[in-house]
């Protein structure tokens, strides 16, 4: 905006905005801080912002007590795998909806979203039994499938909103230039939609990474990702704040860092076409 703002006004707004933002961020900050404290200073009253006895011991302890690399790797495989598989299925669907819309396209989209409204707890038992029977229980491929299907409506919706911004004439030009439908999608649509596909990918990796219901109920050991890792650290271990904080930090750090770096693309994707 080309209006003039007095420095004083700007200072007030800056102070207010930073105060609010720091309040929102504080719990994350406090967790990370606590993870470097000793158990004694972690529960000190009044709470200490800085202590003299910084330590990495909590991380060492958590690392030695559990198989963090396996949990981590499972998280990566499951979230990235389900997202890529989802994209593969969703791109053609979104192409259809965006470029060959019919009278029922909106209804179809809404129906897809409504499948997400079914409470997971309601279908827990059948899902558990199906996974047991088909041998998918506690396997990565099983979770990849489950999370892909869970997030597919979101992926289709996001891609649909991006594709709709691409002028249909360009795809027609490709058709005139002799491109088959497959080539049209591979050489023209997909490269043009890369920013949209990237933010769709990011959001879905985050959603899959943070999913905690199916990942906990459909795994025991082999395929358990970080959400199961953190669940195992809560209650039964007793209240060791510093170690709990270290484990929490280890569970959220990868996605937090990924999110910070890709914040711009992600926020664009988050709008679900809400902003033109």
């Amino acid at each position: 905006m080309a209006r003039t703002v007095t420095p004083r006004r700007k200072l007030y707004f800056t102070l207010a905005a930073w105060t609010v933002a720091l309040l929102i961020f504080f719990p994350v900050f406090w967790t990370i801080l606590t993870s470097f404290k000793t158990e004694v200073s972690a529960v000190a009253s009044p709470p200490q912002l800085f202590t003299a006895d910084w330590t990495l011991e909590n991380y060492a302890e958590v690392w030695s007590r559990s198989d963090y690399p396996r949990f981590f790797w499972n998280s990566v495989v499951i979230s990235v795998g389900s997202t890529l598989l989802g994209l593969l299925i969703a791109i053609p669907a979104a192409w259809s909806m965006a470029f060959v819309p019919g009278n029922r396209t909106k209804d179809l989209l809404m129906w897809m979203l409504s499948t997400k409204m079914m409470p997971a707890a309601a279908v827990l038992i059948p899902m558990y039994l199906i996974f047991q029977k088909t041998g998918l229980f506690d396997t990565r491929i099983g979770l990849v499938l489950a999370l892909m299907l869970m997030n597919l409506p979101v992926i289709v919706w996001m891609l649909y909103t991006y594709f709709k911004e691409i002028p249909g004439e360009i795809l027609e030009a490709a058709r005139m230039d002799g491109a088959s439908l497959r080539n049209e999608i591979i050489y023209v649509l997909t490269p043009m939609a890369i920013p949209g596909i990237a933010s769709t990918m990011l959001l879905n990796i985050i959603l899959a990474w943070n999913e905690a219901f199916w990942t906990i109920t459909l795994t025991t050991v082999d395929a358990a990702p970080l959400s199961a890792f953190i669940a195992s650290f809560s209650a039964p271990q007793g209240l060791f704040y510093a170690k709990l904080s270290a484990a929490s930090t280890m569970a959220i750090a990868p996605i937090l860092i990924l999110g910070w770096f890709s914040q711009k693309q992600l926020v664009r994707g988050l709008t679900f076409g809400a902003v033109k």
Binding site: P167, E169, I170, E172, A173, A174, R175, M176, D177, G178, A179, S180, V188, P191, M192, I194
Partner: peptide
């Protein structure tokens, strides 16, 4: 015949160039 098989070329109002190429 589909457009690709008709041997015709078209210039569009919006030019319809491929922006990524």
């Amino acid at each position: 015949l589909p457009p690709a098989k008709r041997g015709l070329a078209m210039v569009f109002q919006s030019y319809a160039l491929y922006p990524h190429m």
